[in-house]
Computed example of a mutant assay.
Amino acid sequence: MPIRYLIKQLLLPPGILLLLLLLAWWFRRSRPRLAGVCFAVGFGGLWIMSLPIAVEWGARAIETEPLLPQSQWTTLAQRADAIVVLGSGREREDPTWGMDIPTGVALERMRFAARLSKDSGLPILTSGGLHYGQPPSEAAIMADSLQSDFGATVRWKEEASRTTWENATMTAALLQPTGIKRVVLVTQAWHMPRARWSFEKAGFTVIPAPVGFLGVDNARPFKGWLPESKAVWQSGQLLNEAAGLLAYPLFYRSL
């Protein structure tokens, strides 16, 4: 896991862009033209990643699943048997709560899942394994928070998955033997295309319930053309999804 994490962080932006800047400095005397190219790509890439307008445009290309209309929330039980909410990491030993808690992204998903469960009466499954091998699982952390913070009871916890593909296949191992093959899937809008593909490959009929759309008006001064630190993180998420959308059909096409 540490080696895979290291490789991923170095090959995807902003890691690869920082490496290019390092190469630009390294070759500044011996190969100045190569250094110039490395600097231009590295600096330019980081600049683009920092622009809210770039996040907005990139998200519009990735967020292809539409929102779930409120008019359908109360009737979901006619089309699905369970709500599946995917984990998104955790905050380790948060000093306010004195324990591990869900990330802000996970809380956004959990809030929506709790509301859908309340309106539809559908049971909830949380999915997410050990974060870097350390207990408790993401699924358990989310289940506790859903109960204590949102008053929603979780019926199932899938606590072993480490990837979106494993979210799907391990959830299938839990639910499909009980006859559940229709699920409402809750995750970020930018993550939904890959998540839906994985769950459909695992044998589910999926009703997408995306949250956290980034492909909307960024509402920033100067229309988002000034750099912003938050945009770097958001751009990184979108680039990771773009890589995943390309890689998953190659890695899992025969499954």
Rank of each mutant, 00 (worst) to 15 (best):
L12G: 01
P13A: 08
P14H: 02
G15T: 04
I16Q: 04
L19P: 06
R31S: 06
P32L: 12
R33P: 12
V37S: 09
F43N: 12
W47S: 11
S50L: 11
P52A: 03
P66I: 11
L67W: 14
P69F: 05
L76K: 09
L76R: 05
Q78Y: 12
A82P: 10
D94W: 06
T96W: 03
D100K: 14
I101C: 03
P102A: 07
E108D: 05
M110A: 03
M110T: 02
F112W: 05
R115Y: 07
T126W: 12
T126P: 10
S127F: 10
L130T: 14
H131R: 11
G133C: 13
D144T: 07
S148C: 00
F150T: 00
K157Y: 04
A172C: 10
A173I: 11
P177R: 01
Q188E: 05
A189N: 00
R196T: 15
S198Q: 01
A202Q: 04
G203E: 06
V206F: 15
A209Y: 06
A209K: 06
G215K: 00
A219Y: 00
K223N: 12
W225V: 12
P227L: 08
A231E: 02
V232D: 07
W233F: 15
Q234T: 00
A242F: 13
L245H: 07
L246K: 07
Y248G: 08
Y252W: 12
Y252S: 02
